[in-house]
């Protein structure tokens, strides 16, 4: 039997404050892909990630995860399997370990040794910091890595990245994305990354979906993108960051 795709979006529409952010979008994503969602700001990229993490629901259309309808079953289980890293990392008051062990607030059986935690930090390239360090004192890049490590503690099947490097310098951005790519290959999860910077995304993603004004303007590998004759897509690609 053929395994169902990890995500299926069928004619999904999402309205916010009376405005259609996403217009009848259909996307199928298979397990293990590294997909970049590209497009100018306001195109609906983050909206798609929020739908995948079930932080929002579509106004119409259907979303399936591994063949199962999104509006059925436990939303918490779903969110554990579909981890999200936000554009601006939310770091809680307290130490690094308190941020990582936040799961204990609702999962009493969540126990990890210091060794496990250091291992997790090392995985995301966060070395040279102490578990008891005040998490708010970390640098921007360190905070983003801490947020990534925290999401990975759920051992998600999918990692949603919402412009994870937008506040970082290019060297740091590449460092983090290289880590994510390596982790993806090691752990086999699916990555869906939102970016307005396609020059950065082409180095890591294998598939590119371009969104323009809530509609999917192009979808495919880099070669398909380059051959896309849509003037709007080319304008976005040539213009780079809008």
């Amino acid at each position: 039997m053929e395994t169902p795709p990890i995500f299926e979006l069928k004619n999904v529409t999402r309205e916010e404050a009376g405005r259609e952010i996403l217009k009848a979008a259909s996307i199928t994503i298979h397990a293990g892909e590294f997909v970049a969602l590209l497009g100018p700001s306001g195109a609906g990229k983050t909206t798609i990630l929020r739908l995948f993490n079930a932080l929002d629901s579509p106004n119409s259309g259907e979303i399936r995860f591994r063949g199962e309808r999104y509006d059925e079953g436990s939303v918490r289980d779903l969110r554990q399997k579909v981890g999200m890293v936000f554009q601006t990392p939310t770091i809680l008051e307290g130490t690094v370990v308190q941020n990582l062990m936040v799961f204990q607030r609702w999962r009493k059986d969540f126990v990890l040794s210091d060794e496990d935690l250091y291992g997790k930090l090392e995985q995301v390239g966060l070395t040279g910091i102490g578990l008891d360090q005040d998490a708010k004192s970390l640098s921007g890049g360190e905070k983003q890595r801490l947020a990534l490590a925290r999401t990975l503690l759920n051992a998600p099947d999918v990692l949603l990245l919402d412009e994870p490097t937008s506040s970082l310098d290019p060297v740091m951005a590449h460092q983090i994305l290289r880590r994510i790519k390596a982790l993806q290959q090691e752990m086999g999860f699916t990555v869906i990354m939102v970016s307005h910077d396609h020059r950065l995304a082409v180095k890591y993603a294998e598939r590119f979906i371009v969104l323009l004004r809530g509609e999917i303007a192009a979808d495919g590998p880099l070669s398909v993108l380059k051959g896309d004759d849509s003037a709007a897509v080319q304008a976005f690609l040539n213009g780079g960051e809008e």
């Binding site: 932080l55 554990q80 981890g83 936000f86 936040v102 609702w106 947020a147 759920n154």
Partner: peptide, 19 residues
């Protein structure tokens, strides 16, 4: 708001997210 959505996104129950 950011903290609440971050906790929800990790699978926290609403009650925990707003605690």
């Amino acid at each position: 708001e950011g903290e609440v959505e971050m906790l929800l996104s990790l699978g926290a129950p609403v009650r925990t997210a707003v605690h």
